[in-house]
Design a protein around this nucleic acid. Sequence first.
DNA 1: GCCACTTATCTCGACATCAAGATAGATGCG
DNA 2: CGCATCTATCTTGATGTCGAGATAAGTGGC
Lengths: 155, 155
Amino acid sequence: MAIPVSSRRSEAATHVWLVLWKAARAIGQNAMRSVSALGLGLSDFAVLEVLLHKGPQAVNVIGKKVLLTSASITAAVDRLESRKLVQRRADSKDRRSRIVQLTKTGRHLIERAFQKHAMDMEETMAVLRPVERVELIRLLKKVGMWAAARLDDKQ
Amino acid sequence: MAIPVSSRRSEAATHVWLVLWKAARAIGQNAMRSVSALGLGLSDFAVLEVLLHKGPQAVNVIGKKVLLTSASITAAVDRLESRKLVQRRADSKDRRSRIVQLTKTGRHLIERAFQKHAMDMEETMAVLRPVERVELIRLLKKVGMWAAARLDDKQ
DNA sequence: GCCACTTATCTCGACATCAAGATAGATGCG
DNA sequence: CGCATCTATCTTGATGTCGAGATAAGTGGC
C-alpha cells in the first residue's frame, strides 16, 4: 500500500495522510527490527503480548485486540503453536471456542522480549516530549475514531 | 502486522504507537474504499497520481516517491500496464531505465478519480481543524524523521 | 580501453494478510 | 422442542509486498 504524493495546501487532507503514513511506516519498521531478533513478526509479537498481559484468551478475542481478521489470527496462532510458544485448549463453557495460552517457553520469551521492546520504542519516540506525546495522541484519536466511525456506518 | 496493546503510562511510547497505528489503519481503509471503486489498490492509485502530477517517470523514481521496493513497483506497473492505463518506453539517455507514462485511458481515469479521492479524504479528516492539522503534521514529521534516521544509521 | 563498482530493472520464492465460504456449536423465538 | 439465526473457528484462493539475487548498462580510476 502506498499513498498519493501530491497536494497543494499544507493542511490538505491528502498531505496529512501522506505524513501520517510515512511516520507510521518508519516507526513500524523500527518496531519490526526490535522484534525480528526473536524471529517473530509484529503480529505474532502482539499476540504474545496480549496473552502475557491479559492472560489466556479465545482466538477471536485476541483477533479483535490486535486488529486481525479471523484468518490472520488462525495463521498467527498456528505459527506460534508450531514453535511451541502457545497452545490451544478447549473452552469448557463453549465448545466452539478455543482458548490460547502461553507455554512456559512462550512466557519466558515474551517476558524478556517485552521489556526490551518497550525500551526500543522509547528510543524511537525519544524526540517527542511528554506534552507532545499527549497532544499527538489526542489528535490521532480524534481523526482515528472519526475515520473508524465512517467505516462502520457505510457498512 | 499488528501492535502491542498494553502500556501503563498514557504517554508511553508503545501507547503512542498503538494509537498512531490504529489511526493510520482506519484512515487507510477509508482511502482504500475511496479508490477501490476504480478497481485499483492504493499503490496503483498512488503510481497513477505521481504520473499525473509529475509527468512520465522512471520506474525506480516512482518507487521512491510511493515508498515501494523495486519488486513492488515492477508489479504495480505490470498491473497498470496490463489494464492499459500506463505504458513503458525506453529512456533515450539511459538504456537501463524505463520511463512509465499514462496512456490516454489512464489519464482520463486518474484525472476523474483524483478529485473525488481528495474530496473523500477531506471528509475523513473533517474533524480536524486547519490548526490541528498543522500541529499534527509537525509532530508526525518530528517523530517520523527521527525514526527514519534511526533506520538509516543502523545500516 | 579495461576492470571494479554502482545503478536500474526484473525474476523468484516466501510470507502475511484478507474476503468469502464451510463447519460446528450456541441461542432464542414460537 | 425444533428450526432459523448467530457466533467462533478454520479453510481456501487471491493479492500485494518484500528480500535476495540475476542481468544489463552506466561510471570512474588508472
